[in-house]
């Protein structure tokens, strides 16, 4: 079927089988391989992207369901060479080891920070329930999300 997607501010018209998942379009058709497929059972969160500003698991959404909507992936966050405040925070806090979960973590974290202005540590831990990391033990990820949320606030007011 024909679908229209705006991905990272670029409009695309695609012809895909009806049963195509959003993550398959992003990775296969558009070569945006920053969005990962981890468990493929909507548990691990490696495939999280934003659809119309909300974080969703792109392995559990059909591309057809996103027809006419705006999608943001990890590739759409940086502004040229300058990283998004949440990406910067993950780098500074050493919030990754193997990095496989990181794109999903960052996409979830940005949605969380946007929705909860005075984010607490407990809210971060609860807000990341849908993202699994097998390396870090989460300590530095939580630190990074709090720092990234502050960075986003500072960037918004500057």
């Amino acid at each position: 079927m024909q679908i229209r997607l705006t991905v990272n501010n670029t409009a695309h018209q695609l012809d895909v089988p009806d049963n195509t998942l959003l993550v398959e379009v992003l990775r296969g058709e558009l070569a945006l391989t920053g969005t990962h497929i981890g468990c493929d059972t909507s548990q691990c969160g490696a495939c999280v992207v934003h659809v119309d500003g909300r974080s969703v698991k792109s392995c559990t959404m059909l591309a057809a369901q996103a027809d006419g909507q705006e999608v943001t992936t990890i590739e759409g966050l940086a502004d040229g060479e300058s990283l998004h405040p949440m990406q910067e925070a993950f780098k500074n806090c050493h919030a990754l080891q193997c990095g496989f979960c990181t794109p999903g973590m960052i996409m979830s974290a940005i949605d969380l920070a946007q929705r909860s202005p005075g984010l607490t540590e407990a809210e971060v831990r609860r807000g990341l329930e849908g993202n699994i990391c097998r390396c870090t033990g989460y300590q530095n990820i939580v630190k990074a999300v709090l720092a990234g949320a502050s960075g986003m606030k500072a960037a918004a007011t500057s």
Partner: peptide, 9 residues
């Protein structure tokens, strides 16, 4: 229910 992403859909 579930997690934030499940609740969004």
């Amino acid at each position: 229910i579930g997690d934030a992403q499940v609740r969004n859909r």
